[in-house]
């Protein structure tokens, strides 16, 4: 029984990742049934073994390109997808595993694995967009379920999705959060991090960890200078601040490199 006729087909792909972004789709409990009614979920191994052959109208791609096989497979995914949306920090910026881009892969490999020679890895973990054209990138570690539902709704309606590229600070101010940086001296990446999470961490009096990666026009150098001179944050700490989930996003990568150079 094919219920998919007339409905757009959706495929969900996994590359190097923790599956958390796919889970964001599965945990969209209020909307999941509606999604399943409006689209035909044709390939989603995290949810079902049943596979409908491509091509697909919409592919959601989780994970980074980390192995030679990945680099081949993503080209195939692109070939059989009309619209390709990357979901999460791994797919859009290389993810936490891109920390290896700052180190020596062979050194890690021989330390971690008993038989390193059987591990086929690329030297760098890279974003999907470095390999194939991407139609839309959904940020976050993990993505926000609300944003994913919004993007699917927008694709279905043929309209522009509402995924603002301004700073987390805008969300703090809309929400009425007290600024943890100004009022408490807490280091916070909010001013250089893209909105989308609803300023969740500052709402709980924590500094922003930068899960959504750099804003549309980030200035991390100025923020770091302020953190260093005003709050006494040292270079190793500044380096760590930018080297998390979006370490290889260009603006954060450049900034953490700057502190690598001056770190003792």
């Amino acid at each position: 029984m094919d219920q998919g006729i007339g409905r757009p087909t959706v495929a969900v792909w996994k590359f190097a990742s923790c599956d958390g972004c796919q889970l964001s789709l599965l945990s969209a409990e209020d909307e999941l049934l509606s999604i399943a009614e409006e689209v035909h979920i044709a390939y989603f191994l995290e949810a079902t073994r049943e596979v409908v052959e491509g091509p697909y109208d919409l592919s959601l791609v989780e994970g980074s390109i980390s192995t030679p096989d990945d680099a081949e497979r993503i080209r195939h995914v692109r070939d059989i997808s009309t619209t390709l949306i990357t979901i999460g920090a791994c797919a859009t910026a290389g993810g936490i595993q891109a920390l290896r881009n700052f180190g020596d892969l062979d050194a890690f490999r021989s330390l971690v694995y008993a038989r390193p020679e059987v591990v086929a890895s690329l030297a760098d973990s890279t974003a999907i967009a470095e390999h194939v054209p991407v139609d839309l990138a959904l940020r976050g570690c993990p993505i926000e379920t609300d944003q994913l539902v919004e993007v699917i709704s927008a694709v279905l309606a043929g309209r522009k999705p509402l995924t603002p590229t301004h700073s987390v600070c805008v969300e703090c101010k809309l929400r009425g959060n007290l600024c943890v940086a100004v009022a408490d001296g807490t280091p916070c990446l909010g001013p250089v991090t893209q909105a989308g999470c609803g300023a969740r961490c500052p709402a709980f009096a924590r500094g922003c960890y930068g899960c959504f990666g750099p804003t549309e026009s980030p200035n991390p150098a100025s923020l770091s200078d302020w953190l260093e001179e005003g709050l006494g944050v040292d270079h190793p700490e500044l380096l760590r601040l930018y080297r998390t989930f979006n370490a290889d996003a260009p603006a954060f990568r450049t900034e953490s490199r700057r502190h690598e150079e001056v770190a003792p």
Binding site: H166, S167, C169, V170, K173, L174, C179, G190, P191, V192, T215, S217, P218, N219, S222, L223
Partner: peptide, 13 residues
């Protein structure tokens, strides 16, 4: 502009 974060805080407060 070298210092400004373009974060929008000034306008929102």
């Amino acid at each position: 502009a070298d210092r400004c974060l373009a974060c929008a805080n000034c306008t929102l407060v």
